[in-house]
Design a protein around this nucleic acid. Sequence first.
DNA 1: CATCATCAATTGATATATCATTGTACTGTC
DNA 2: GACAGTACAATGATATATCAATTGATGATG
Lengths: 143, 143
Amino acid sequence: MSDLGSVVFYTIERAIKTYRQFAQRRLVAAGSTLTVDQWLVLNVLEAEPGIQQGLVAARVFKDKASIARMVDLLVQAELVERKVPANDRRSVSLGLTRKGRRQVAEVATIVEDYRKQALRGVKAGEVAALRSTLNRIMANCDE
Amino acid sequence: MSDLGSVVFYTIERAIKTYRQFAQRRLVAAGSTLTVDQWLVLNVLEAEPGIQQGLVAARVFKDKASIARMVDLLVQAELVERKVPANDRRSVSLGLTRKGRRQVAEVATIVEDYRKQALRGVKAGEVAALRSTLNRIMANCDE
DNA sequence: CATCATCAATTGATATATCATTGTACTGTC
DNA sequence: GACAGTACAATGATATATCAATTGATGATG
């Protein structure tokens, strides 16, 4: 009963933790000082320039408060800018600085690489099945 | 490329996050003040009384430092005791207090329940496949 | 136009994750 | 028995997760 190996949720947890550590090692090895989460945020900002913080949070499945603090750090690091529009000063719009864009470009291939490696030997059908089972679990957790 | 929906790792991350929030809601709804992680640790201590902190960390796939701090809190809450053996004072042995044992007993059925619900409609074969794919990914991340 | 509801963001408080460093106490070897 | 190495834990520093409460600004309604 208490053997976590028999509880699939802990396999999931262990897997994603293992992957995150792997990803972080790769970033460090490539000389990046970004955390995996910071990279994620930068990536969203590149894809959707001008996006608001709350939306970023939704994109990366994180809390608004977490994003606010991450953006603080990214602004400090001069990778991200906050722009306050004159018409509605609530909805801050976020964007990459030149430095930020450079970092994203540098890191992109590394990320592609390690994602590919983590999936080596995993068939497309297996990925689809994984996704489907996880979606079912998420749906079950909605009640 | 930057659509996280197409990257299976973020599906995994989202799934486990969804499950953890679900689990936490259930604990709160049942009147427990434990976090999911604290419950995990208590559970290990019940299964292996006298275990050392480092081993607990291994059991629950967490860092030793995280466990040290969690145990601090659990000791404060009078759910856990640290016993320092006279012969080797390094290897602190951990155990549940009576209060701790009571909490574990109270929470156990709730946990069983929500685990079951989260897997509702998921066939045994799907769970096995999930596990197998995740194991492959973890193996790929070892290099 | 004054108040109220709402929404975006910030901040506070607490818990956890991770790495690096330090401390403390054994253990083995010579 | 002194010394080096090692094992376990504690602590510091920083980043993230989460909930609650607050602030600041806008829009809606009476």
